Structure formats: structure tokens, C-alpha cells
Simulated assay, not measured.
Amino acid sequence: MKRTVYALARYRDCQAAIDFLTGAFGFRAHEVSKNDEGVVNHAELLVGDDMIMIGEGRPGGPGIYVAVEDVDAHHDRAEAAGAEITMEPVDQPYGSREYGCKDPEGNLWWFGTYRP
């Protein structure tokens, strides 16, 4: 199945979040990526047939990640429509190109080429 939309949450301590989410809610770890210091900075957790992604960072409320084909064109369209860009398009070490923004109500959105 080729997914396009993923729920996303940020945690200061991803490993503690994984431990809690798997223990308390029965989520299953699918992919866990660690940085050079061994700290989890990204994880994909399965919830039934669906997936959520969690990442390291300051919690700022839930967000949505949407896979798109052309990140730069998508960014330009969103910015022209009034989206507040929170992260300019950037190439990630795991091969994705991504950007982040807020909609007019302050909801967090990330768009990129990554498809787990």
C-alpha cells in the first residue's frame, strides 16, 4: 500500500515515547533511526494497518506529514497562498526533501518526498 498522509508528533525523548506508546497503546515499532550519539531522532510506529511518525524536537502539538512529488513547487504554492513557512525546503540525510509550515489556524504541516 502506498501511503500519502501520516500523523506526526514531536517528542523531546523519542525512546521514552516509543516505550510509552508501545507499552500503553500497543503500537508496534516499524523503523527506528538513531543519530551518531545513539539517540532516536525518528521512528515509525504501526497502529493496525496505519502508521504514525514521531520525531525528536520540541513538542508543538500534533502535525500531519504529507508525501508529495515536487516539494519545491508545493512549497512555492503554499507560501503564495499564505502558509507560514516554518522550515524551508531541505534535503534530509535519509533521502527525502521536505519543508514545514503552519496553516492560518496554526496547525503544523510537513510535506516531503519520504514514503516509508
Rank of each mutant, 00 (worst) to 15 (best):
K2L: 09
R3C: 06
T4C: 08
T4K: 09
T4H: 07
Y6Q: 00
A7K: 07
A7C: 11
L8D: 13
L8M: 12
A9R: 06
A9N: 12
R10D: 09
R12V: 06
D13G: 05
C14S: 07
C14K: 05
A16P: 00
A16L: 09
A17L: 04
A17P: 03
I18K: 01
D19N: 15
D19A: 13
F20K: 12
A24I: 03
A24T: 08
F25P: 00
F25A: 03
F25C: 01
R28E: 14
R28K: 14
S33P: 00
S33E: 06
N35G: 08
V39L: 05
V39W: 01
N41L: 03
H42Q: 11
H42V: 02
A43K: 01
L45R: 02
V47C: 14
D50E: 13
I52A: 02
I54M: 07
I54S: 02
R58G: 00
R58E: 12
G60N: 13
G60F: 12
G61W: 15
P62D: 02
P62S: 13
G63K: 04
G63T: 03
I64T: 15
E69G: 10
D70T: 09
V71E: 01
D72W: 04
A73K: 15
A73D: 03
H74W: 07
H75P: 03
D76H: 12
D76G: 12
R77D: 11
A78I: 09
E79K: 15
E79I: 05
E79W: 12
A80F: 06
A81S: 11
A81F: 12
G82V: 05
E84S: 08
M87D: 04
P89M: 05
P89H: 09
P89S: 05
D91W: 14
Y94W: 14
S96I: 06
S96M: 06
K102Q: 13
K102D: 02
E105F: 08
G106T: 07
L108Q: 09
W109M: 03
F111A: 10
F111V: 11
F111M: 11
T113R: 13
Y114A: 12
P116A: 10
